[in-house]
Design a protein around this nucleic acid. Sequence first.
RNA 1: CGAGGUGUAGCGCAGUCUGGUUAGCGCGCAACGUUCGGGACGUUGAGGUCGAAGGUUCGAAUCCUUUCACCUCGACCA
Length: 511
Amino acid sequence: MAKNIVARAKDYPQWYLDVIKAAELADYSPVRGCMVIRPHGYALWEAIQKDLDRRFRATGHVNAYFPLLIPVSFLEKEAQHVDGFAMESAVVTHSSLRKDENGRLIPQSELAEPFVVRPTSETIIGYMYSQWIHSYRDLPVLMNQWANVMRWEMRTRLFLRTSEFLWQEGHTAHETAEEAEAETVKMLNIYADFAHEFLAMPVVKGRKTESERFPGAVHTYAIEALMQDGKALQAGTSHFLGQNFAKAFDIKFMDRENQLRHCWTSSWGVSTRLIGGLIMTHSDDEGLVLPPKVSSILAAIVPIYRSEEEKSKVLAYCKRLAVALCGEKRVEEALEREKGREIISIFVDEHAMQKIVFDLREGRAVEKHFHWEQRGIPFRFEVGPRDVDSEGFVLKVRFDNSKCFGKLAEVNSQWFADKCAEVQEAMYQKALQYRDSHIIDVNSYEELKEALKSGGFVRCWFKEDTEVEAKIKEETKAVVRCVPFEQSGEVGKCIYTGRETSEKVLFALAY
RNA sequence: CGAGGUGUAGCGCAGUCUGGUUAGCGCGCAACGUUCGGGACGUUGAGGUCGAAGGUUCGAAUCCUUUCACCUCGACCA
């Protein structure tokens, strides 16, 4: 049992914070609601960035960067957009500081027009697109930016909801509604594939109801994941913006019939919130659990010895194991490069920048086991004198805490790659099984209320209606997470109003 | 923004009601020794403007005033 992490069954929110702290993913900052992402946490974001960016490029998108500050007047241009973001805006009103009589620094020059620290960039990007787009020949515009944004949230939680967070936001402009719509769906599919293949996190693809829609969007699609405590997490969104922003920012082009028309735009994003989702999908009472594809450290080699004799014998053998895993060249390079360091990093694959570590620190092996375990490192090779004698090792697999005995002779890079792939798939299957067994079908409002008590997605016939949703939210705290794309094609009666509908929705309590 | 609570070492806390030696404990940290295959132990040591400002007093972590920050619940949360 981990002594610095409370059990999930006892206090799930506290467990979540304990895991983050124990794995050194993030820390609170002196600035309210803003977190510091520590190296081990940032490595997760970098891994996410790398994989997603590859998928964006493969579908013809390019990266650009737009300013942090947005004129307040821009926000006013799209009516729903203002309403959605006004309350959570951080506003820059002054430039320069001067000292007052007490030596305190106070803002000096008031700006002619205040700026908003971007909560999202539709407005400023819309403005720039209006400058750049003139003809159908300029379309489509398929851009993405990796950036930080700020939303002055009332209450924050590490990774899940912080005042400042990192994300990517794609912004595209198209000739036709159909094309923009197709783009919106395409990007949602990319998110879903990414969640599945990379994060080993199953998600439901669907459409948001009107009350959950992005301010200014015609409709919003989302991927919804289910956390271990039965609460849902919106893991990514893709918005069809229609011509709303094009009209607000005058993004017009001369079409093929020589007519001046407004573009059709989309926007889509995922954020550091994914890391919160990753934690709550896979981790256990011992701490963080990372899928091999996400982890920058794939394995730790932990030597076990007592005497000096044993030490030299075991370390020499560990080196042979490292060579079997990574190749002689990389091991020699690492030992040379990191000479004198207590933890040696050996790259398994320069391209992915994934590595194994050789833990040479002084101290008890037990402490090291906990160290790597709490950080979610997928594999741990434990090597002691007995293993040296038998030309073997003990392999601990983080995700299921299984332990097996291996032989040095059978280890090579392909063997290890297979192990990684095996665990990656097993983690997805485990999460998928959990998710699927927590989708409950109900046929009445009473059943819905009852089912919500045990958590999970509750699926039922529902005729979309903002007022009804508000009532249900008030009475149960649950909302429609999404209207799944996958529908039976049958028709049923709405569990609240009894009206006929062709759609089943997923209700859940949410983060 | 409403209600309640908490600020004392890196972290967790005692001490505050009833003012009085040099402000304590546990964890963690450092050194040394014994240990070492699932969170060991001993010895020694470092570490504090008691959230901030002002006041009462011979004397304030403790009493008074003001203020700031954080936490919990509510409201809010594309």
